[in-house]
Design a protein around this nucleic acid. Structure first.
Lengths: 226, 226
DNA sequence: AGTTTAAGTTACTCATGGGTAACAATATAG
DNA sequence: CTATATTGTTACCCATGAGTAACTTAAACT
């Protein structure tokens, strides 16, 4: 029940009530504080859940597990989240914002296509350290609800499409060789997403060396042309 | 119970019994037939299960589903398989044989490292069309039983290691440029395994073009060096 | 032919875990 | 200081699905 109340609605309701009385700061401030607190708790839950999903897998992680990680009981989760699948959806929302943000940043520059692609790869390898992003990558498209599944696939296709655009741009400005941009974009994503399954920032493998090797492969391939 | 009887034991038992009486063909033949039939049925079950796992996911596929696909009831499966997880294990056994077989074939040639790598890529893209292989790729390492999980990871590391050896050989014979063979092997696998999640032989995308693009990426990269 | 073994069935048990109802405590507004 | 929304709890329900026991049918060996 509680989880059906949309945040936006809640705010506007408060706003209406207050508008006719007084628009003092304490009211607004505490209102925001509450929202902030709620948002922070939701974030923490998503983070805990994502970490658990990555470690044990979605189906092997119970809501009780997640609740325990957050030091609450299971029903409390339902105050922040519609159901188990909604956790995946909310993680994906976060991931979408971050990845598209990266793409915004990368495509905003005046650099040529190849350089933009290089920037994207760098940024993406940084990003996939985050459990929420990794959770999205691992579970994207995996939704019982049909509408949710389609939304997830569409969102990922959107991202893939933007990378393809970068590649096409590179082919037009001559910085990227002639290739099938669709396939190359997918292959690149497959490789990068694969990384997210095993790479940990704390590990022995140097972050920079990883990026170097990905760029080596993408830039020149491994064949020796002496 | 019945599933605990190892195939080899069964055969040797029959053999002993017969050795002292008569080694007529009909007996051996029918014995083989039985084993053959059993093996064929097991194969069919694995194939059905793998297809279902790929379509709906391991946890969303019940043993009843798999049984139905094979036109038997659930308990019958237990005659061929120890438990649900055992299906994954048996799929992995099949996959291991095929992939290592490919590697045997590839490394047996006198070609240089790069050509061997190329051959492997070609062969692997062929192989990952098979549902059982795809099932292995998607579910490798995902085992509730610890021993089984370790075995799965070990087997995959073994394969990865052999590819790394090819790369190292290529670096030694000068056909592959200097690189971190471990990372490159993993990246290559990530890309190839990623393919297995979306590529269908029946689809519009030409098999040869896919291979071409993978080889383009691995061979020369996408940067235009004009 | 008659006995044994393989192969399959029906009808259960039972743990797990998602989701809910009803109640309790805590914070915030007026 | 009281009323109300927010946040959380305990104690359930109930569907699902893995695995088993006991029984039946079909095939195969002697």
């Amino acid at each position: 029940m509680g989880n059906n109340i949309v945040v936006g609605y809640e705010i506007s309701k408060i706003g209406k009530k207050i508008k006719k009385v007084k628009l003092t700061k304490p009211v607004l401030k505490s209102g925001l504080k509450r929202e902030e607190k709620r948002q922070l708790k939701l974030d923490a839950i998503l983070r805990h859940a994502a970490a658990a999903f990555m470690e044990k897998g979605y189906y092997k992680t119970s809501l009780d597990d997640i609740a325990q990680l957050h030091n609450v009981t299971k029903p409390t989760l339902y105050y922040y989240v519609k159901n188990k699948e909604d956790i995946l959806i909310k993680c994906e929302d976060v991931a979408s914002v971050r990845i598209n943000g990266l793409l915004d940043q990368v495509t905003a520059s005046a650099e040529n296509g190849f350089i933009q692609l290089e920037h994207f790869i760098r940024g993406y390898v940084d990003i996939i350290t985050d459990d929420i992003i990794r959770c999205h990558i691992r579970h994207r498209g995996q939704r019982e609800d049909k509408a949710a599944r389609n939304a997830s696939l569409k969102m990922h296709r959107g991202i893939e499409h933007r990378v393809r655009e970068i590649i096409i741009k590179g082919m037009e400005d001559g910085s990227i060789r002639d290739c099938n941009s669709t396939i190359i974009a997918i292959l690149l994503f497959d490789a990068l997403n694969g990384i997210s399954a095993w790479y940990r920032d704390e590990g022995e493998l140097n972050h920079e060396e990883l990026v170097q090797q990905v760029l080596l492969l993408v830039t020149e391939g491994v064949k020796n042309k002496v």
